[in-house]
Design a protein around this nucleic acid. Structure first.
Lengths: 149, 149
DNA sequence: GTTCCTGCAAAAGCTTTGCAGAAGA
DNA sequence: TCTTCTGCAAAGCTTTTGCAGGAAC
């Protein structure tokens, strides 16, 4: 049930003096099971079904808390939606402008440091790409073929 | 007064059938003169002084229009502030977490395409870094020295 | 003279806040 | 028991919208 990674997360929270309340655990569990870069709304809707007493305020509070202690990253790929990501490893985010899905991709910006920024202290690096994903590309092709028939 | 770049911008707008109204020109001019990645608020406050009839709605409308036709880029480095950038050339944005200033830096992600994304159609690439800028770093050092005196 | 733009006010979203009651340690 | 968390409602922001009057062409 409880994988080692999840358990180590809980220990980290405990060590910071953060109470492992029912709702916080639910939010954490959701994030570790769904790497879909969810919005607050998505998390709330999903968890509210099984925990009807959960409020959106608590989802906000919990996410802000997790971001603060560095367990969760904010994804600002779009200006009208804030998304959250629990994956720690270095990666970029690609958002499909057609279906809205967000894909992770590996990218290592540390291997060749940027000369211009050598006297800057860099704490976070975000890479956001936008475009059309392969699945939507092939759908567009099909639509074209149909139209041209 | 009107540099060639600015003139070519106007021609581009004309060619798209966009009217060169007084307020639109003011917003465009502001963007070409201030590479400070301003927010809507900053543009509004600056221009409202000389053009008191300018409304915030028009600033929003104009910026959305310019983004739509690809003349201006949206910067979502922070989730509580949308910034705008008229520079076309490829560059990343560094935001100082201490003073809030945004710095441009050159970065070329096209030279080594990402294998994982070879079947994706990529339309936009954004690179956002956060940390502390040299100026704030030296201030922190000075403060430390003072405290330790 | 048309068409499009602009400003105002209101509405729509999203996120935060204050506080009393509930739950965790 | 004491501290912290939670939910509700309200407030605070930013951004969008509807519409009548005004400016651009």
């Amino acid at each position: 049930m409880m994988n080692p990674t999840f358990k180590s997360l809980l220990n980290l929270l405990k060590s910071k003096g953060i109470r492992l309340s029912h709702h916080r655990l639910k939010v954490l569990e959701y994030l570790t099971k769904n790497f879909s870069h969810p919005t607050v709304e998505q998390i709330y809707i999903a968890l509210h079904e099984e925990s009807p007493t959960l409020s959106k305020t608590t989802v906000y509070n919990t996410l802000n808390l997790l971001v603060e202690i560095g367990l969760v990253r904010v994804i600002n790929i779009e200006d009208n939606e804030t998304r959250y990501d629990i994956t720690i490893k270095n990666h970029g985010h690609f958002k499909c402008e057609s279906c809205g899905k967000i894909y992770d991709f590996g990218i290592d910006l540390d291997s060749s440091p940027i000369e211009e920024l050598k006297s800057f202290k860099i704490n976070y690096k975000d890479v956001y790409f936008k475009g059309i994903c392969p699945s939507c590309l092939s759908n567009i092709d099909k639509t074209k073929l149909k139209t041209e028939e």
